[in-house]
Design a protein around this nucleic acid. Structure first.
Lengths: 276, 276
DNA sequence: AAATCAGTTTCAAATAATGGAAACGCAAGG
DNA sequence: CCTTGCGTTTCCATTATTTGAAACTGATTT
């Protein structure tokens, strides 16, 4: 189960249950969840009931299985829109994608992992691991290393300590020391490569999206395969990607303004009605 | 804000806070949230702290603003995959989209609203979060009416009572009575039209995805414009869409009940979603 | 019929949440 | 320099919820 953040409140436990359901990855029965949770039967049972009644889980009468609920999807859509990064980056990813014709990723750091927040497929799509919403390792992906390289020094040790250091390929860096050296190279160079460190044959260039203060917001990468290109050619795209990430960063900061709470008319189906 | 589900547990309150943040739609300050929540200052503060520490919200030190957190996006991705409908329907939507070349939607019912779960544009296969989770009215969209028409009679009044009945166009049905009549026509005809009831110039055909027991799982629609086609031509696509929804329904049941038989006795059709 | 299993409910004790009030920090104004 | 006001955070006695062992239900198996 990896990161169990030592439940302290009821809410934390409820969320942990959500994670457990999510981790099963399929409709799951009570006993299965019980076996994979640290909670006693009655506690788990009540948590599940609460979550179901709240719409965060749904429960199928026939199969007696729990799945994640639709309320999550609704919340997540807003989350995606509300995150300052993703919606702002969108048109720029489109532009980048059109220009280079390769797979393009936008990622953010979540705890010590990379989460792919948006993605454009290559004109000739290549099967690969990443997918919007999916999480991946930070220490052996282009976007991950680009972000780690610009993390405040104080945070780095904690984050490195949470990496799995699994050797995906024989080029994977599997120790904090070698990674630290790589991060220094990345800072010097201004961008990161992924040289088949996560999947064989998959390479990429990645640049971080940084605020003017230097805080890491996310990272953008262009990914391809060794069959189609090589690191040097990908590196040649770095200036283009730099333009993109700088534009994104700039627009993000412009957007930041919080907003006074104008007396909005409470109800009303008015505003954001779906395009269809 | 209409649906405030009268929090009874702590978890419910925490989730209500999430909804409030989501409803603001932008990074929001404490005082703003306080003004829009039913909780006392200290309570709200602690709920926010919990949610932030759990990653469901994120808090920006500089602007002192709360936004929905990245953990939500991660969960929602799994939710989408795990929902029996969306991943199963995906290839069939692709097929339908390729065949008709028009906008295709997959929707489900969430409370009394329609939630768009997947979508195909004529051209590019848009990344998921750009549209998943968008909600729309049920009483004046093709997918919405198709699903309402097949809801258990006992639930219909409650759902209709939650509609806004806003007159989007002069063809919008704005009373329960006229809608009930329309739903009867839809049941008789076997599929629903949207005749510019939500947006002028936008028309569609929609069919519900039903289990063998008749429970509503979702709906699929093909949408176009009056400039390009008319209702009659869209209606001609109904048999094709019927094939699609039936295949989806069938695969859903196969997937969920690998070797279950004896499908009788229980009470009436048990809809999988919908109001508490 | 008895045993087993999966899921549900009970209840007194333990624990966590509550919220009024007050303190804190900070910027603008006297 | 000392107010004043606003937004944020902490305190703590009170209150209500959560807890979990164990008992119960009702299927299915032996």
């Amino acid at each position: 189960m990896a990161a169990s953040p030592a439940a302290e409140g009821t809410v934390a436990k409820a969320l942990e249950v959500l994670d457990i359901v999510a981790a099963r990855g399929r409709p799951t029965r009570f006993s299965d969840l019980l076996a994979h949770s640290p909670f006693p039967k009655a506690t788990l049972y009540r948590l599940l009931q609460t979550l179901v009644s709240q719409g965060m889980l749904s429960f199928d009468q026939h199969t007696a299985c729990y799945t994640l609920g639709i309320r999550l999807v609704r919340l997540a859509h807003v989350a995606w829109q509300q995150s300052s990064l993703a919606p702002i980056a969108r048109p720029h990813l489109d532009r980048l994608s059109a220009e280079v014709g390769e797979t393009v990723h936008l990622a953010q750091l979540d705890h010590a992992q990379v989460i792919y927040v948006d993605k454009r497929n290559a004109r000739n799509p290549v099967p690969m691991y990443s997918q919007a919403g999916k999480v991946g390792p930070a220490y052996c992906t282009g976007v991950g290393k680009a972000m780690l390289a610009h993390l405040p020094e104080a945070q780095l040790p904690a984050v490195l300590a949470q990496q799995s250091w699994h050797r995906f390929t024989d080029k994977t860096l599997t120790t904090p020391e070698t990674l630290m050296a790589e991060l220094a190279r990345i800072r010097a160079r201004g961008f990161a490569y992924d040289d088949e460190e996560h999947e064989p044959g998959i390479i990429c260039v990645a640049l971080p999206v940084l605020t003017t203060r230097g805080a890491v917001l996310g990272a953008v990468s262009v990914t391809s395969t060794t069959a189609r290109t090589d690191l040097a050619s990908l590196g040649a795209l770095a200036p283009l990607v730099r333009d993109i990430v700088q534009t994104i960063a700039q627009e993000t900061e412009t957007w930041r303004f919080p907003e006074e709470s104008a007396p909005q008319s409470g109800r009303g189906p008015e505003p954001c009605l779906v395009s269809r």
